[in-house]
């Protein structure tokens, strides 16, 4: 059906695309650490070498009933339901920052369970619904 030249060009472009995808894959695999925006508490826990003088981001859920405001700072626990990290932060917090919601903290690890943040970002999840629907869902889950 296809001419010889057409077929050889098709094969050529297929090889070009395959090698481009392969290159991209290898590139991103080796850069993985820089591509991820934040690390979870478990990833921190399992990490072999940690640079305590390097700024990093950690992310997870704000654990329920752990947000404590004091005069100069706000403390809370970031959890991924396996491991936890205690976070201390002073500064302004985004509107969506709340318990049991996603959060990303930027700053320095003091040790594997203790994080000094200098920036807090709220992470919004993929759930979109009107307030009434959420209320109905909450009621349902309580029953």
């Amino acid at each position: 059906m296809l001419g010889k030249k057409v077929r050889s060009r098709a094969i050529f472009i297929f090889l070009v695309l395959t090698s481009l995808i392969l290159t991209a894959y290898i590139l991103f695999k080796s850069l993985e650490e820089n591509v991820v925006y934040f690390l979870s508490p478990t990833e921190i826990y399992e990490k072999q070498e940690i640079h305590f003088d390097k700024k990093i981001r950690i992310g997870g859920m704000v654990k329920k009933n752990t947000i404590k405001h004091s005069a100069e700072s706000i403390n809370f626990i970031i959890t991924d339901f396996k491991n936890e990290i205690y976070v201390i932060y002073s500064g302004s917090i985004p509107n969506l920052f709340a318990e049991e919601k996603g959060v990303v903290a930027e700053g320095f690890l003091k040790d594997k369970n203790y994080f000094l943040a200098d920036k807090i970002l709220a992470k919004h999840d993929e759930n979109y619904m009107p307030p009434e629907v959420n209320e109905a869902l909450m009621k349902e889950s309580k029953q």
Partner: peptide, 17 residues
Amino acid sequence: WSTLHQSSSVNILSEST
């Protein structure tokens, strides 16, 4: 990868959120 951007809410293969 873990991103700040949320994952997609409108899905064809799985249920939309």
